[in-house]
Structures are given as structure tokens and as C-alpha cells.
Design a protein around this nucleic acid. Structure first.
Length: 737
DNA sequence: CGTTTTTTG
């Protein structure tokens, strides 16, 4: 096993060393997405024979026994063990779907729910949507009478609880990929724990990676005695079926992982036999830089007579989908594919045929500063769990190698797992959702990982300001309940609900829908200037909201033509999605009897309506040329993607969100009149100085949860990025009060 | 004056 030679030196940790052995690495590699069913080495066997070959089959009766006797089962299912497709079927065969009951399986991502449902339906010889179905936003493929095994996104499960708080139709719920700790998985986990107390018959199966198994078991265990025979939860491990992956570390730290990635790719290409390469980087810019460097080097190589060619492909979420599809294309034997990707390739997509993985050791994550209520994107070291997940992207169809561009010593210093999303998110939608589910005292909600107290305060303050909560922190009727019903952030929901009063619900619907889609404007690297010129046609001086409205209306006027989109460098799929989102939102407005009206081209009511939802996000331009928020005097700038960027800056603006990268940037910005703030949010802004008196009011709310939090808790000022950061989490969390 | 990790309802 020759390591690459030259400036890049790797070594494989020996079994005697401090490092983990290869087998251990594989065991701790997190589970794959449900898309893993693509690869099937037993395709020539009958479906029944294939099912029996899966590692999980040997444990079929054991699993059924445990589900029968324990309320919660934590399954540590390694990659390729077959748990996602098989366990629901075992349960159905054992009678858990008798008398109209349903076995539900949740997935964090839509595609996974659909593809696994398809595979299971096929195995059962069923038509998808009958006995086996799936339910994701915009696509309910189930039959209320016939469906027995139902795959759904965890977000959908939380939504279902609004109609049926005890999930009475379900006999078993399996939460797949729970170790990913996505926001909705965590909410579902807390809610299921509560439901189990009222429904002793409900069974929960948590599918997780090794690392978190005990945490899940202890969380669900209702046994308060020391007698383990009374435990209500249990762990079961199912071995996987993957190929060995050798891990190599770099000998000494590299100053520039971009350069090192390029060098490592070239070394692999020149010294290793067949097999595609997957490199993990942190962002679009890095990916594109490496792609062009590699193409350059590959040219030099082929000129010098190298027979084997390199096909270099970028992969990130912002890439047009036609470009994304290229990474799945098969290439001839004389070509080696190199895919340079962001963390999209870690869980969201699975590429077959990867033999070599290069891991730069960093990841770009969204984090939330609970003190300033600003989200930021930060590049941080990956967690061990992520690094192992990256390793696992090789070894799916054959043995492989993983090159880590950091030392083994540094690997050991990495945090065990990434901080759960719950602890690095804006909690306003979460709190509202919980309140709508009847959980009034959100402080006592069983969070698997409690979020920072300050995030709670921010969320409660915002919801109060929007009128969704009253001064006792209770959900208001009907406003609060209605805001919660929208699948949107509360500010958008409030804006929509107000749109009837401004006589512009048509326009606001289009704006709200468009704002949910990222990357509407596309910039193909080679035609960037041309694209910007085309985009300028839609721009208006009022700002991004009305610009997006223009785009949407033009799209409709041109009969939703994909060709028209291409000509104008617009994201066709995104625009189609905007129309779907708009339909869904429109139904809710009809339900709440918001009159259908148009301002007939008058921008004024539309802008005022935007302010009625986003008044809290107002900023003023100062003589320095920089903006500052009204709430906190925080310095802000207009994001370079805004149409107001490089224009004469308007004195007052509102924005949808702030994102901190190199500076604090406002995204989706619209010019407003300061008088509108006083007019439309008199409870939030005072006349004269336009300073907030909101906080003042909040502190006067006796007995409110908010006051409770404010008086008793230490405010946090540090971003919580890693679960391992015990001290910081300890002082910021409200657990135990 | 200088840019978007990734999901989900």
C-alpha cells in the first residue's frame, strides 16, 4: 500500500499507535442516507433472497422481541445493514399494522423518504402509495385507508401532530438518521417522549450511529429505579456491509488545504489504480478554485502523454442541477472522475464508485448568535463524526482510501460530533410550533440538547412583537395560531396575514414564495457579465422584494417557460418551486379568509405590508455609509447580491435576514420610510428617537417565561458550535431550572 | 464598497 510520495506525506496509523484502528473507524462511520439502496450486489437473486442476505435479517426475531418488550429501541445500524428498508417490513409482518395502524419511518430529507418508500414498495410487490407510501411537503403519496408503512420527513411528522397530537394512527415510529440531529428530528424526539408518557402502546425506534446510542436510550428510558430489568429502552447493534477504507493522515499540518487538495488529487491520479476521487471542501469559491487548478494540471499531464484522463467536476448546492447531474454520469475506464464537493456530498447525495476521499478537515456551518440574533456562516473544524462520515463515502462498492489533510493528533482533538442544529438556530419557528402543539411551558420541554437560554429570549421577544404571543407568553388566538400554521418563518407569516389589510395579497403571496427559494439568479462562471446584464432588467430602486416580484410576474407572463429562464439566467426549477409554494400559501390565506386583492401596480401598499411583518428588521444608513440596526445599533451592510448594492443607499431599509460572513450583511433589502415604522409598529418603535421600548415592556411582564429567563440566566455571548464545549453549554442552557 | 454550508414545513 504505497503512500503518495513527494511533498505530501501520509502515514497509515499502525494498530500499536494511539490512533483508532481501521475497523473502528468503519464502525463509527455514520449511517448513509436512504439513497444507499442504489447499490445491490445481489441483484441476480430474488427479492426474498436479497432480503435474507441483509445483515439485519439475522436479527429479525430479536428486533421484534425488543420492540414488543421495550417502548423504545435504539438501533445502531451500520451502513448497508438494511435497517431502513427491512425493519418496517418486519413490523408489518409481525402484526404492528393490523387494525388500520401505521408504521411510520422518518427521514431528514425529502429525496430519501421518496426513494426508500419506492424500494420497499418494490420489495413488497406493491404499488407505491397503497400499502407503502410516503408523505413529504407538496407530495402526499399515501392512501388514508390502505397505507400501512409510511415514509415521511421528520418535518412532516411534526406537522401531523398539529392535527393529531398523540399520533393515534401510528403503532410504531422509526426515526432514521437521528444522529444527524437536524432541527426537526430533535423536535420530533422531544415530542415523542411526551407522547409515550400518554400512550404506553406507542413504540419508538431510533436509528442512530454508535456515538449517540446511549444518549438516546437514556433520554427515552422511563425507568426511575436502579433495577435495569425495568428499563423501557434498549440498544441493539446491527453490523454493516461495507468495504474496508484505509485512513491516511498528513505528517505535519498543511498551510493551505486548497493547494494540498490539488496536490493530493494529482498524486493519487499518478500513483493509484482505478477509482474515482471525492474531495471535501468548505464552499463554492474553494470548489471552483480547485476545479480550475485541477483542469489546468490535467491539461499539462495529458500533453506530457499520460493516458489516463481526469474528469474534474464541481458539486455544491448552488450549482445548476444540469451541472450537478454530471457527477452521477458514468465515465469510460480510461477516465478518472474527480468530484470536488462541499458537505452536500457528506449526507445529501451518494456517488457510486468512489475509491478515494480527500478530507480538508473543515466545514462551513450556519450558526446563530443568540445575543445579536444574527445568523452567521463560519468555517470550523469538522467533528469526528463528520470526518468518519466522509471516510464512509469511499468503501461503499469497493475498498478505498481516505486522505485526511490534517495530522492524526489534530483528529484526536476534534469534537465528537457537530453541535445539534437546535443549539445553533433561530428558535422562533420552533417555539411557535411547540406552543401550537399545546406545549405552553417551552422551558420544560424535554430537549435532547437544550438550546441556549438567550436564543429562547430572542425567539419569545420576536413572537411577542409580532403579536403571536400575549404578555403571558401564551399563543394568541387567532393570530398566533395562524402564524404557526404557515410553513414559513413567523415574520413572513405575519406579513401574509396582514396583506388583506393593505389590499395586496396577490403581490405579497408572490414575494413570500420567491423569498423561500435560494439562488433564483444564476451566474454561470463563464457568462457572468452577461447574466448580470440580464438580471438588471428586473431590478427596481425600491429593492429586492419588488425585484423578485418582477421576476415572478415575468415568469408567469412567459408561461413558465424554461427556455425563457435560461435566456435570462434564472433558476427554472426554483421558479417552478416558487409557484408551488405560492399555491400552498394561497390555500392558507383562503382558509383564513384573507381577501384576494391586488394593488394594481402601486408599490406603496406592498412596501407597507412588508414593513408590517419585518418592522423588527429595520436599519438606518449613517453618514459613514454603513447601516445600523434600530434594535441593537449593530453595524450592517447591504449584501453584494442585493439590487441596492452599489446604488445610492436609501436612508431606511428593512431586510429579511442578516448573515455574517466577512461582515454583517443584510439579505433581501427594501427601502422604506421611517414614518411607516411608527405607523405600523407603534408597539415597537417610539416617536422621536425611534428607539425601541419593546424591551422595556418585556421586562415588565410578570410571571412570564421570558422574565423568568431574563432574571435567572446568564446571557450568552459565545457561539455554540461544538457539543463538546460543556462549560459553555452548561452556563447557557436552562436545563434544570 | 465585494458574495450563498445544508436541510425542512
Amino acid at each position: 500500500m504505497a503512500a503518495p510520495v513527494g511533498p505530501m506525506k501520509f502515514w497509515k496509523p499502525g494498530t500499536e499507535g494511539p490512533g483508532v484502528s481501521i475497523t473502528e473507524e468503519r464502525q463509527s462511520a455514520a449511517e448513509s442516507t436512504g439513497v444507499s439502496v442504489i447499490y445491490n450486489p445481489y441483484a441476480s437473486l430474488s427479492i426474498e433472497q436479497q432480503r435474507q442476505k441483509l445483515p439485519v435479517f439475522k436479527l429479525r426475531n430479536h428486533i421484534l422481541y425488543l420492540v414488543e418488550n421495550y417502548q423504545t429501541l435504539v438501533i445502531v445500524g451500520e451502513t448497508g445493514c438494511g435497517k431502513t428498508t427491512q425493519i418496517p417490513q418486519y413490523l408489518a409482518e409481525a402484526g404492528w399494522t393490523a387494525e388500520g395502524r401505521v408504521v411510520g419511518v422518518t427521514q431528514p430529507r425529502r429525496v430519501a423518504a421518496v426513494s426508500v418508500a419506492g424500494r420497499v414498495a418494490e420489495e413488497r410487490g406493491a404499488v407505491l402509495g397503497h400499502e407503502v407510501g410516503y408523505c413529504i411537503r407538496f407530495d402526499d403519496c399515501t392512501d388514508p385507508q390502505a397505507t400501512r408503512i409510511k415514509f415521511l420527513t421528520d418535518g412532516m411528522l411534526v406537522r401531523e401532530m398539529m392535527a393529531d397530537p398523540l399520533l393515534t394512527r401510528y403503532s410504531v415510529l422509526m426515526l432514521d438518521e437521528a444522529h444527524e440531529r437536524t432541527l426537526y428530528t430533535d423536535i420530533a424526539i422531544g415530542l415523542l417522549k411526551k407522547i409515550q408518557k400518554k400512550r404506553g402502546d406507542l413504540r419508538v425506534i431510533v436509528a442512530s450511529a454508535t456515538l449517540d446510542a446511549e444518549k438516546f436510550r437514556d433520554f427515552f428510558n422511563q425507568n426511575e429505579t436502579n433495577d435495569p430489568s425495568k428499563d423501557t429502552s434498549m440498544i441493539l447493534t446491527v453490523e454493516g456491509r461495507t468495504f474496508p477504507v484505509d485512513i491516511f493522515y498528513i505528517q505535519s499540518p498543511v498551510p493551505d488545504y486548497v493547494k494540498s487538495t490539488v496536490e493530493t488529487v494529482m498524486k493519487i491520479h499518478q500513483t493509484e489504480s482505478d477509482g474515482d476521487i471525492l474531495a471535501f471542501l468548505t464552499g463554492q469559491e474553494e470548489v471552483e478554485a480547485i476545479v480550475s487548478m485541477l483542469i489546468e494540471q490535467a491539461r499539462v499531464l495529458s500533453r506530457s502523454g499520460m493516458k489516463k484522463h481526469l474528469r474534474v467536476l464541481p458539486m455544491y448546492a448552488g450549482l445548476p442541477s444540469s451541472e450537478q447531474m454530471k457527477v452521477f454520469e458514468r465515465v469510460s475506464h480510461s477516465v478518472r472522475k474527480v468530484i470536488v464537493a462541499t458537505n452536500i456530498a457528506e449526507t445529501s447525495i451518494t456517488i457510486n464508485g468512489i475509491a478515494f476521499v480527500i478530507d480538508c478537515g473543515f466545514v462551513k456551518l450556519r450558526a446563530y448568535n443568540p445575543k445579536t440574533a444574527v445568523e452567521c456562516l463560519v468555517v470550523v473544524p469538522v467533528s469526528k463524526a463528520s470526518a468518519n462520515q466522509r471516510v464512509g463515502r469511499a468503501g461503499r462498492n469497493r475498498s478505498g482510501k481516505c486522505y485526511r489533510l490534517y495530522t492524526e493528533e489534530d483528529f484526536e482533538k476534534l469534537p465528537q460530533s457537530t453541535v445539534p442544529e437546535m443549539q445553533r438556530s433561530n428558535l422562533a419557528p420552533v417555539i411557535l410550533q411547540l406552543k401550537a402543539l399545546g406545549i405552553d411551558n417551552v422551558l420544560r420541554f424535554p430537549f435532547l440538547s437544550p438550546p441556549p437560554a438567550q436564543s429562547m429570549v430572542q425567539a419569545l421577544e420576536l413572537l411577542y412583537a409580532l403579536g403571536g404571543l400575549d404578555k403571558h407568553c401564551r399563543l394568541t388566538e387567532p393570530l398566533g395560531m395562524r402564524i404557526a400554521e404557515f410553513p414559513l418563518n413567523p415574520m413572513f407569516a405575519k406579513m401574509l396575514l396582514e396583506s388583506g389589510n393593505f389590499g395586496c395579497s396577490q403581490e405579497i403571496l408572490s414575494i413570500a414564495a420567491m423569498m423561500q427559494i435560494q439562488n433564483i439568479f444564476m451566474f454561470p462562471p463563464n457568462q457572468k457579465a452577461q447574466a448580470i446584464r440580464k438580471h438588471r432588467k428586473f431590478a427596481v430602486e425600491e429593492g429586492d422584494h419588488l425585484t423578485m416580484l418582477n421576476v415572478y410576474e415575468a415568469f408567469i407572463k412567459h408561461s413558465k417557460s424554461s427556455q425563457w429562464c435560461q435566456e435570462h439566467f434564472l433558476n427554472y426549477k426554483g421558479l417552478v418551486r416558487a409557484t408551488t409554494v405560492r399555491e400552498q400559501l394561497k390555500k392558507l390565506l383562503v382558509k383564513f379568509k384573507v381577501p384576494k386583492k391586488s394593488s394594481e401596480g402601486d408599490p406603496d401598499p406592498v412596501l407597507r405590508c412588508i414593513v408590517s411583518g419585518f418592522f423588527a428588521n429595520a436599519a438606518k444608513c449613517h453618514s459613514t455609509g454603513a447601516y445600523r440596526t434600530i434594535r441593537d445599533d449593530q453595524e450592517l451592510h447591504i449584501h453584494p447580491t442585493s439590487v441596492l448594492y452599489a446604488e445610492k443607499p436609501p436612508r431606511w431599509v428593512v431586510y429579511n435576514e442578516v448573515i455574517q460572513t466577512s461582515r454583517y450583511y443584510m439579505r433581501d433589502v427594501t427601502a422604506i420610510e421611517s414614518t411607516w415604522l411608527l405607523e405600523l409598529a407603534p408597539h415597537f418603535y417610539q416617536e422621536g428617537t425611534v428607539r425601541t421600548r419593546h424591551r422595556h415592556q418585556m421586562v415588565s411582564l410578570l410571571y412570564s417565561q421570558l422574565l423568568y429567563l431574563k432574571l435567572f440566566l446568564f446571557p450568552s455571548s459565545i457561539f455554540l458550535l461544538f457539543d463538546g464545549n460543556r462549560n459553555k453549554l452548561g452556563c447557557n442552557s436552562f436545563k434544570g431550572i
